[in-house]
């Protein structure tokens, strides 16, 4: 169980958080303009990387804020946390 540094609250146990999957997948502004394939790409396709992955996390049992986190899924090392809307760091 890792320790996550919530950008709003500081370090807390992982049990307070929930993971929301891959980060930086923006909901299309005009879904109706998209083909089935393009919409399916947004809806279903996720990278599921073994290694450094950009993820969304929610401090569900805390401030309830969503934020982004860079985690190496092979060893759970957390490289960075940053707020929604902030630029992803270069890892």
């Amino acid at each position: 169980m890792f320790v996550i540094n919530c950008p709003y609250c500081g370090e807390r146990d992982q049990s307070e958080f929930s993971c929301g999957g891959e980060a930086h997948i923006v909901r299309p502004k005009q879904p109706t303009e998209l083909s089935d394939d393009e919409w399916a790409e947004y809806l279903f396709m996720r990278k599921n990387i073994k290694g450094v992955q950009f993820e969304r996390w929610n401090h569900a049992h805390g401030c309830r804020k969503w934020f982004n986190m860079v985690r190496d899924t092979s060893n759970d090392k957390i490289h960075a946390v940053y707020k929604m809307g902030e630029k992803p760091p270069v890892i």
């Binding site: 929301g20 923006v26 909901r27 969304r56 929610n58 569900a60 309830r64 804020k65 969503w66 929604m84 809307g85």
Partner: peptide, 13 residues
């Protein structure tokens, strides 16, 4: 509630 908060914070801030 979680779903609504998610959209508000991430898609429609």
């Amino acid at each position: 509630l979680s779903k609504l908060e998610d959209y508000l914070q991430t898609e429609w801030p």
